[in-house]
Amino acid sequence: MTDTDTETRSVAAGRLFSRPAAVASCAGFVLIGMLQALYGPAVPGLREEFGLSPSGAGLGLSLHFTGGVVGVLAFNAIHSRISNRALLAASYGLMAVGAAGFALAPDWPLALCAAFLGGLGFGGIDYGLNQLFAVGFGDRSTAMLNVLNAHFGIGAVLGPAVVAWLGPGEYAYAFGACAVPAALLIIFGSSGVRTRAVDETPAAVERPLGLPRVLVGFLTLYILNVGVEAGVGGWEPTHLETVGYSAAVAASATSVYWLMMTAGRFLVVPITLRYSPERILTICAAGMTVCLLLARVKEVAPVAYAGVGLFIAPVFPTGLPWLNRALPQAKRAGAWVIAASMAGGVAAPPLLGAGIEASGIHAVPWLLTALSAASLAATVWLIRLTRRNVD
């Protein structure tokens, strides 16, 4: 049997990815996780290289996230006019150029431009693969989305480890190490992906959104969960030190939190094959809320924060298939949700910081519990809305 025959059979079966393409996609998510995680550890090297203030050095990550939001919305806007392969190849190309440009930039303005370009590619990959995995594996789509996003966590752990091994002053080598595989994935990451754009059938032609409350509900759910995710990651070490833990223990506990997020996405895979996304997300929101309440108790706070990582892990990937099922007529809903989650990741830490300034560090668990409880309420509300619309 020829390769063409195999691809034809895959298309007929509705499969978007060959097995090698699925593996390459997971490698792509390791790469975008690593690239995003490099900016923070590289700050000391950037300050020394370009003579920057701490806030100036932080602009690199800000431009990366800005490019990510623009990339999600831009690639979503043109996805119906280009193939899946073209979308992925262009995204990997932008990421390769951005990472290489950041590594080689002779001055800070050019480095910021490169960070924005890399962010555009990051957004294209984040949107493209999440969207394609959400519809490309049938009943296994929820499980495969969790596997895909777990690889992002692997990259997020690897990035700081690489900078720590090389030293902050050698950050350019770390960014260059991202550029090379990104360039290779231009070919290997897009071949084996069905070229026809998703949902070209007449039934999926975009119409005015008939269920705006459902979309608002999903946007709210994702923004709240990203707020909890970024809030724990940003403020857990400060809170633990304030209640009496050493800086080393606090930093280690935060690393465990991120590792639990990665592990949780792998662990939930068999569960997604038996239970609906709605049930899983309800349990996750309730578990997060209980763990954050327990984080008020000094003796169990590090374990409680690790529990938050475990429960929050499945939320982002598990919610996307539910979204596509609830709003099949709104092709852009997934892009708006992904973009909102990125924007929430940028806005949540400073907003929480303002609340902490007003209430004190000891209020961290209370503030995060409020966000988590609101997430639980949004999940229950969404279940009622989507069931009503199905009925």
Rank of each mutant, 00 (worst) to 15 (best):
W322K: 00
L323G: 01
N324Q: 13
N324C: 11
R325E: 13
R325P: 07
A326R: 04
L327F: 06
L327K: 03
L327S: 09
P328K: 07
Q329W: 08
Q329G: 13
A330W: 02
A330N: 00
K331Y: 00
K331T: 14
K331C: 12
R332S: 06
R332D: 11
R332A: 12
R332E: 07
A333W: 07
A333T: 06
G334L: 14
G334E: 08
A335F: 06
A335D: 08
A335N: 13
A335W: 11
W336A: 01
A339V: 03
A339N: 06
A340E: 05
A340H: 07
A340G: 10
M342L: 14
A343Y: 05
G344Q: 03
G345S: 15
V346M: 12
A347H: 00
A347G: 03
A347Q: 00
P349N: 04
P349Q: 10
L351R: 01
L351F: 03
L351C: 04
L351T: 01
L352A: 06
L352H: 03
L352S: 05
G353N: 07
G353K: 09
G353E: 12
A354C: 11
G355K: 09
E357Y: 15
E357L: 13
E357I: 14
A358Q: 14
S359Y: 14
S359K: 15
G360A: 12
G360Q: 04
G360E: 12
I361A: 13
H362S: 13
H362N: 05
A363T: 07
V364Q: 01
W366P: 01
W366V: 15
W366D: 13
L367Y: 08
L368K: 04
L368W: 06
A370E: 00
A370Y: 06
L371G: 04
A373M: 09
A374V: 11
A374R: 10
L376E: 03
L376V: 00
L376C: 09
A377E: 06
A377R: 05
A378F: 02
A378D: 06
T379Q: 10
V380H: 00
W381G: 07
W381V: 13
L382M: 02
L382V: 03
R384E: 03
R384L: 08
R384C: 09
R384T: 11
